[in-house]
Design a protein around this nucleic acid. Sequence first.
DNA 1: ACTGGCACTCGCCTGCCGAGAGTGCCAGGG
DNA 2: CCCTGGCACTCTCGGCAGGCGAGTGCCAGT
Lengths: 338, 338
Amino acid sequence: MLSERRLEVLRAIVQDYVGTQEPVGSKALTERHNLKVSPATVRNDMAALEEEGYIAQPHTSAGRIPTDKGYRLFVDRLAGVKPLSKPERRAIQNFLAGAVDLDDVVSRTVRLLAQLTRQVAIVQYPSLTRSTVRHVELLLLAPTRLMLVLITDTGRVEQRVVDCPAPLTETTLADLRARLNSRVVGERFSEVPRLVQDLPESFDQDDRGTISTVLATLLETLVEEPEERLMIGGTANLTRFVHDFPLTIRPVLEALEEQVVLLKLLGEAKDSGMTVRIGHENAHEGLNSTSVVSVGYGSGNEAVAKLGVVGPTRMDYPGTMGAVRAVARYVGQILAES
Amino acid sequence: MLSERRLEVLRAIVQDYVGTQEPVGSKALTERHNLKVSPATVRNDMAALEEEGYIAQPHTSAGRIPTDKGYRLFVDRLAGVKPLSKPERRAIQNFLAGAVDLDDVVSRTVRLLAQLTRQVAIVQYPSLTRSTVRHVELLLLAPTRLMLVLITDTGRVEQRVVDCPAPLTETTLADLRARLNSRVVGERFSEVPRLVQDLPESFDQDDRGTISTVLATLLETLVEEPEERLMIGGTANLTRFVHDFPLTIRPVLEALEEQVVLLKLLGEAKDSGMTVRIGHENAHEGLNSTSVVSVGYGSGNEAVAKLGVVGPTRMDYPGTMGAVRAVARYVGQILAES
DNA sequence: ACTGGCACTCGCCTGCCGAGAGTGCCAGGG
DNA sequence: CCCTGGCACTCTCGGCAGGCGAGTGCCAGT
C-alpha cells in the first residue's frame, strides 16, 4: 500500500506534468508544491512509484511522467471534479438557449464543449429508442409507393420510402394514418410494436399486406440502432500537442472519421455517471495515447444519448470532467424544455 | 512571352515537385524528362522563369519549386484533366448506388472523394432553392400550433413549427393542405411565392390570418440561404504533408471547422465548370497554402450544390480535377434517379 | 543559340564537447 | 526507522566545426 505522502507526490507529478508537458524532477516538485520533505526523499518515493508502475521516465536522467496506471489512480482517488465558475455556467446556458432546432442544439453543444475543454468534442444525437412519438405521417407518392415520416418528441424527423405490394387508396391511407396516430402518439418507441400489432386485422383483406409492410417499416425505423448520428468538433485542438506529432495525431484523426469507431467508443461508456477511459484502456488502437471522458445526457432523468471529449492522456482531468458534466446537464435541460 | 520549351520546363518542374515533394534541380530535370537540351540550358530557362515569378528557390543552392503563379499557369495552359479509368468509374457508380437516403448519398460522396484524391473532401447538401416540391404536410400539434413539413425532390425534409394567431380546425387544415399541394407539388421553389399568393383569399375571413402565417413560414423555409449544411471528410489526409507541419495544418483545420468559411469558399467558385483556387487566391488566410478544386453538381443540367476538395498547393491537379469532376457527375446521376 | 566546364554558395549531416538536469546510493542524524 | 545532504554518474541537449554534395551562375567555345 502506498503511503499518504507518496500519493501526494503522484498527484503533484500529474498536476505539474499536465501543466508543463515536461517530465518533472524531484527538485522542481519540492519547490512548486510545499511538500515538507527534501528532494532526496521525494526521489525515494518516486522510485517506489515507478516500481509500482504509476510513473516512468522517458530515459535515464530525465524527470518522471505518469503512466496510464498513474492517471487512473489520480482520477479514481486523488482528484475530484472541478465545478465550473458561475459565469461559465451562465455562458453555457445562454449559448445553448439560443438554439433553434435539434441540429442547432447538437452543433452548439459540440462547439461549446470543444471550446471549454480545448479538446475534441463528440456529441451523439439524442437516441430514438427512448424517445416518444409525436406524429406519424403517410404520403402517397405513387399508387404503390408511399413515404413514411416519423416525428419524435426530440424534434427529430425520420423518413422512409415504402413500396407496397398492392395499390392503396387515399381513403384507406387517411384511415390508417388516423388510427395509427391515435394509438402511438405520445408513446415510447418500445411500446409501439405492442400497440400496432393487431392493426392490420381491422382493415380489408386486400389492404392487409400493404399495411403490414408499412408497419414493418415503421418498426424497423424505431428499432434502428440506438444512434447512428453524431457530430464532432474541435479537431484543430489536436494540433496543440505539437510535441509527439504527427505520429499521434494521424491515427486519432483517422479514428475520428469513423463514425462506427466513435459510436462504439461512446457505447462502451457506462450508461450512468461519467466514464473516463485512459490511454490503452481504449479498445481502438489509434486512441491508445488519448483519454476519453464521456457521460450520458437526456431530457428526463434517463440518458438518451452520450457526449464526451477526446484528448491526450496528459489532460486536465478535473477541469475536463467538470466541463463535460456541466454541458451534459444543460443540454438535458434544453431538450426537456423544447 | 515564354518560349515553348520554357513552358515545357515549367511543366516538368511542377510534375516532378508534385511527385517528390522536393525542390527540383536542372540536372534531375534533364534526366527524368527527355528534354533534348543540357542542364546548362535548362538553368538559363529556369533563371528566366524565376525572373517572371513562376518558380522560386527556397534558398540559394537548392532546386526550384513552383510559385502560386506557376501552378496557375500550369493549370490554365499546361495540363488537362486526367479522366479516371473504367474500373475507377465503375467503383464510384457502385459505391454511390448503394446509398439509402440523402444523408447517405452525401456521406458516401465525401468518403469517396477523400479516398480518391487522398485529400480533404467537402460536399454541400443539395440546395433547396433550385429544387422542386414533392409534398407539403401540415400537422396540428395543438389548436394554435402546427408543424409544417416540406419534402423536396432531392429527398430532403425540412420542418418548422408555426404558432397561429387563431385556432384552426382539422377540416380547414385538410382543405389548406389539399389546395396547397395541388398548387405547388412538382413546382420549382422559385415559382411557389407566385402560386400561393392568392390562396388566403379563398378562405374564411377568420382563417386568413393564420393561413398567411403558415404561408409566410413556408416561403421563409424555401428561400433559406442556398445552403447551410455541408459535410467534410478525409481530414486525416492532412497529416500526409508532414513537412511543413504543423504551422500549415493548424489554420487549415480551424478553417475547416467553420462552416461559414467553407460555404463562402464554395460560394466563390463559379456556378458552372470547375474552379481551381490556388494558394493566395483563396480569400481565407488559413487556406493560403492550400488549393481548392470545386465544381457544381445537380440532378438535372443545372447545379444544385457544389463539392470539392482542399489540398496542398503542391497537389496532382490533373488527377484531382478528374476525380472531382467524375464524382460530381455520378452524384448528379444518383440524385436524378431517386 | 546551345553546351561543357568551373568556381562558388549554402544547407545538411556528423562528430565532438561542455553544461545542466536528474538520478541512485550511501552514510549520518533525529 | 525514516529523512537528509552529499557525491558520483548518466544521459540529453545545444552549439560548433568540418566535410559533402547538390545546385547555381557565369563564361568561353562551338
